[in-house]
């Protein structure tokens, strides 16, 4: 697993770490029950404060991505992919409803909306 810390990023460092571990779990790079590096080791390797890595792990645990065992370390929690997908779908649904509402207010046509999504998508891809 690679973790990149960008000092120029607007996201706080704990969030950068959290998001990258989360992504690694979601895309299967980290497998269920895999042992994660210890908080202190991660802090040492990334040269960040222990409090930062601890916060990243705490949030990952809160969101159900990992679970910690006292004295043993933190492990990747089993992810219910179906449930996760469903949750994402729901989020997309709510957001699209919102978008449609705004589009109506702005008088945008269906095609214009699709075009906008495509443009943003390609821009986003460049950023990555």
């Amino acid at each position: 697993m690679n973790i990149k810390i960008k000092n120029s990023s607007n996201d706080p460092i704990y969030l950068q770490i959290k998001n990258q571990i989360r992504d690694a779990i979601l895309n299967g790079e980290l497998e269920t029950d895999e042992l994660l590096p210890s908080i202190r080791f991660l802090a040492k390797e990334l040269r960040v404060s222990v409090i930062t890595t601890k916060r990243a792990y705490d949030e990952l645990e809160k969101d159900g991505f990992i679970h910690s065992v006292q004295g043993k370390g933190s492990f990747v929690a089993p992810q219910n992919i179906e449930l996760m997908k469903e949750r994402f779908l729901k989020k997309i649904e709510t957001n699209i409803t919102e978008i449609l509402r705004y589009a109506k207010l702005a008088g945008m046509s269906h095609d214009e909306l699709i075009e906008m999504i495509k443009t943003l998508e390609s821009e986003h891809a460049e950023c990555d």
Partner: peptide, 26 residues
């Protein structure tokens, strides 16, 4: 800046604060 967990700041003999570095920077 890279490694400290907490920063304690002393000025003219007085401790102005001691906070986690992350909170401080945010």
């Amino acid at each position: 800046e890279k490694v400290a967990d907490y920063i304690a700041f002393i000025h003219k003999g007085q401790l102005l604060f001691m906070e986690t570095k992350d909170d401080l920077m945010n």
